[in-house]
Simulated assay, not measured.
Amino acid sequence: MFTRVERNSALPAGGNVLHFEGSPVPFQPGDSVAAALLAAGASPFRESPVDDSLRAPYCMMGVCFECLVEIDGRQNQQSCLTTARPGMIVKRQHGARTLG
């Protein structure tokens, strides 16, 4: 499991919470969505549209696209490049993005 490397890893008091699959996930200011989810032990993030294999962040710099999630109703969002904001609704992405 991923852990924070800061000596004082206590999360600040306040409203720094997003919601992943209906569960609250606290985060520190400046965290990406992927970092917050990984620190909370949330994995996998999505399923491959090719063979339904489970995927999670790999590169954490926007190159691999393994961290795609749905954020506030928008599919195919790179969680490693998206800064966490209070109240975000994040869901796993199942298969390919739907068109519509």
Results as ranks from 00 to 15, higher is better:
Glu70Gln: 13
Phe20Thr: 06
Pro86Asn: 06
Glu21Asp: 13
Leu11Trp: 00
Ala34Lys: 04
Pro26Thr: 00
Pro12Met: 08
Tyr58Ser: 08
Gln93Arg: 03
Pro86Gly: 09
Val50Lys: 15
Asn8His: 11
Ala40Asn: 12
Leu81Ser: 13
Gly41Ala: 09
Glu66Leu: 10
Ala39Val: 05
Gly95Ala: 10
Arg92Trp: 08
Leu18Gly: 04
Gly100Pro: 12
Gly14Trp: 02
Met88Pro: 05
Ala40Ser: 15
His94Cys: 05
Pro57His: 06
Thr82His: 08
Val69Tyr: 06
Phe2Ile: 09
Met61Gly: 02
Met61Pro: 02
Ile89Ala: 13
Ser79Leu: 07
Ala35Phe: 01
Gly100Tyr: 05
Phe20Cys: 14
Glu47Ser: 15
Val5Lys: 03
Phe65Gly: 00
Pro49Asn: 13
Gly41Leu: 07
Phe20Val: 07
Asp51Trp: 14
Pro12Glu: 04
Val63Ile: 11
Ala10Asn: 12
Ile71Thr: 09
Pro49Tyr: 13
Ile71Arg: 02
Arg85Met: 03
Glu66Ala: 14
Asn76Val: 07
Glu70Cys: 11
Pro12Ile: 13
Gln78Met: 10
Asp52Ile: 00
Phe45Trp: 14
Leu54Phe: 11
Asn76Trp: 02
Asp51Phe: 14
Ile71Lys: 06
Glu21Ser: 13
Gly15Ser: 06
Glu21Phe: 08
Gly95Val: 09
Ala36Phe: 02
Thr98Leu: 11
Thr82Ile: 13
Gly95Asp: 05
Asp51Val: 02
Ser32Phe: 02
Thr82Trp: 03
Leu18Tyr: 01
Ala39Ser: 05
Met61Ser: 08
Thr3Glu: 04
Pro44Lys: 10
Ser43Asn: 08
Ser9Leu: 04
Pro49Gln: 08
Ala84Phe: 06
Cys64Leu: 11
Leu81Gln: 15
